[in-house]
Simulated assay, not measured.
Amino acid sequence: MNLQRVTTLFLKEWREIVRDRVFFLLAFIMPVAWMVVFGYGMNMDTVNIPFAVLDQDHSAMSREYANHYIDSRYFSFKGYLPDTHEGDRLLRAGKLRLVLVIPPRFEQDLKSRKTVAIQSLLDGTFAYRVRGIAGYVDAINRDANSALQVQQLTEHFGMPPSRAQVMVQPIHLEVRYLFNQALRSIWSVAPSLIMFTMMVAPAVLTSLSVVREKETGSIYNIYASTVTRAEYLLGKLLPNIMISTVNTVVLWLIATLHFGAPFKGSLLFFFVASVVYVSCTCSIGFLVSTLVRTQGSALLITVILAIVPAVQFSGMFTPVAFLPDSSRLLAHLFPPMYYNNIVQGTFLKGTGWALLWSDVLFLAVYAAGLLLASYVVFRKRTRS
């Protein structure tokens, strides 16, 4: 292998990427744009839920019950409703997600020690959100029940509030959230977006850069030259791997400084794992480009091969352990799942080589296999 020829090909590829506006956008602008746009658009925190109250009792106890929801940080109070028709209209218009209906005789029935049914009308359009809202409603209702029982025991039997609280709730469940104590979805989404972006962008960039030479005919210069297959492979991949590595560092800065995601692991480990991962994704693009002849087909195939595993089988939205057996098997056949384990572990859990070495090893083997396949498939001759 002639290092001078590899360096010449490296510089040639770098100049083409920098000079061509489309490739410059694909190389440097698109990854950052995806990270920022998806980072804001994929915020899955269920907060500031717009709701209103239809109070048909207008008593002190009904207002006190409604205040449990009004004072919650999860809900945004939009006022009291005059009737059920207004609540239905606002729910249909999407201006409310929840309407609480407090029935007549609410205070009177409670003082008579009767069970009172509170109706909560939820907008079920977004099924994955409404389950969280229903959980908030149920939790606040339980707190309101406990507070009411403690108040009654204190007033009627003269119990100290602490004693009454023990009688009402003898078993107290204390929940602690590890690794993401604030339960901020962006802390989990931002690392996964690095995985997603670095799966798609490098593969697309590499595949198009090779196929473009086929379409313009400049690939015949390579066919006729003394450049070997290995030299051409390295000359094409090294600039893209270098650019993708720089982009990974930029995305890491956006995730930590802009979105505030905590990074608890080793920067060196994260950097090494990222270099191995982008080597995989660049090799995917190169392998696709050796099999097709047009940029359109290369783009289509690469996007499908990159996006589907990154979204469906990486654990980005659904943990791999929760997937069906067949889907879980597919997840283990693609790089995104392993790199997602790495970014989630290094960002939120502070894990490193001790627990994630097998994921890095798989990515290294995967990259080596793709490079070998690309070397075998690429031929320095015109295909008939």
Rank of each mutant, 00 (worst) to 15 (best):
F263C: 09
S358T: 13
N341G: 01
V18K: 08
L153D: 11
A321C: 01
V150N: 03
I70A: 04
F196V: 06
V275I: 14
T197I: 05
R92A: 13
L25R: 14
V210S: 13
N247A: 12
G369Y: 05
R5N: 13
L329N: 02
I171F: 10
F157I: 02
H58D: 13
G124W: 04
L122A: 12
I140C: 05
G352F: 14
A273D: 03
Y69E: 01
S59D: 05
A134K: 09
A164V: 00
S283W: 06
V272D: 09
F271H: 06
T125L: 11
S358Y: 10
D45Q: 08
D143K: 03
F10L: 10
R328C: 06
G41D: 02
L329Q: 08
E213I: 03
F179Q: 04
K264G: 02
D138T: 12
G235V: 01
L54Y: 04
L110C: 05
R383A: 13
G315T: 03
G352H: 13
A164H: 07
D138M: 09
P170A: 12
F196D: 09
R328P: 10
A66I: 02
P309Y: 07
L291P: 00
R142T: 04
Q169K: 15
F317K: 07
Y136N: 06
A139L: 15
W34M: 12
S207V: 10
T7Q: 11
